[in-house]
Design a protein around this nucleic acid. Sequence first.
DNA 1: TATAATTTTTACAATTTATTAAGAAAAATC
DNA 2: GATTTTTCTTAATAAATTGTAAAAATTATA
Lengths: 228, 228
Amino acid sequence: MAGKKVLIVDDDIKTVELVKLYLTRDGYQVLTAYDGIEALRLARESRPDLIVLDLMLPDIDGLEVCRILRHESDVPIIMLTARSTDQDKLTGLGLGADDYVTKPFSPKELAARVQAVLRRLPRERGPEEIKIGELSMNFTKHEAWFAGKLLDLTSVEFKLLGVLAREPGRVCSRTSLIEEALGYDFEGFDRTIDVHILNLRRKLELDPSHPRYIKTVYGVGYKFVGGE
Amino acid sequence: MAGKKVLIVDDDIKTVELVKLYLTRDGYQVLTAYDGIEALRLARESRPDLIVLDLMLPDIDGLEVCRILRHESDVPIIMLTARSTDQDKLTGLGLGADDYVTKPFSPKELAARVQAVLRRLPRERGPEEIKIGELSMNFTKHEAWFAGKLLDLTSVEFKLLGVLAREPGRVCSRTSLIEEALGYDFEGFDRTIDVHILNLRRKLELDPSHPRYIKTVYGVGYKFVGGE
DNA sequence: TATAATTTTTACAATTTATTAAGAAAAATC
DNA sequence: GATTTTTCTTAATAAATTGTAAAAATTATA
């Protein structure tokens, strides 16, 4: 596998260079940014596999950058914080960073953590690409293709289709779809799923009223089938 | 079905009380412990159906408690951990907790996870696919095939056939069929089963008036036989 | 802040399934 | 063979589930 891309964001050039040195030595492809704006631009453009993000940045707060990125992708983030007390505040905020490292840190330790976070990814996320019949989904690119065409899905639709398509044929109850696609903390109703299913069908079924791919199992839930 | 027993172990009274409130509201019977010793004693004595276990405990470490319990039973355990990084260490240790929840958590989310873990238990116990003679049933796909053809069953018919076919030859009374297929809270009449059996026979018997597979045991109930 | 996009809720229609009831048929009992 | 009990079958009704459109709420973006 070609070296994975890591984006380092910190306003201190020395820190950036030091970390870059270590990560490059470990075979990573390293991108750097010195402020939040640049970080967001690079993150969107180059789609790094991991981001090391400092809390204190000259323009946008690191917190804010983290929050924005979290809404756009699942890219793992390691937060650099000044004091260990900050860490608790951060975890409290439920930002969903994958790890926290307290400054000052040894670059070696950070490199080890980068490796650790990247190593556990595939286990947690499943394959990053699947194909079932005419459907193919790429989870790193966040793209779904059907019958040769790129589908324009919202993020909820994408997640929902992902859950269904990862196990073709398996019936998923609305409850399990909510847990897996919307999260355990979702507080809404079952029927929300119906509407998303309806919208999905409109986007990928030739005849949405007589679906060939996203099937209803009356009284149980929904399932995705290859279209046989 | 009577509420299942859940044991909550945490040294923080507020956390325990909050979780207890939510689980009680969901119909669970809740036991509580504030240290490892007490947790072990209660687990052995009361045999809860699930344990919510904090990692940090005043006397014995939560890790140790988990390890000990794992040697004594298969009771599902949900671990509460301080930071997501701890989770990896734990999974790495192969402790075999059934789920991990990072603090701070929403009590609602934890309640949902408790329910999810308990729900998937029975499915894990019974096989998800069975074959008896010409009949095969796949419970995750919710499909029943007979003589090479996919049967178009309603969800009650599917459940009914599942109960019968999981133990071929065993006679099931209408009462037990109702309990297992329609649920303990069903308030209707025995005769409902007769109609479902009739409909099932029409779907899988060559000659529904002279059934070869779904047999009537006069005065007792019904049974499924391989067709010998 | 205003605007657009997305997500969720609501409400009602359409559909499917479950249940009941009641007479006919079959089996057991006397 | 008549009687009683149990099961089978049909058909009408009730109940539950799903589909759909549109409004409301939320969230992202300019």
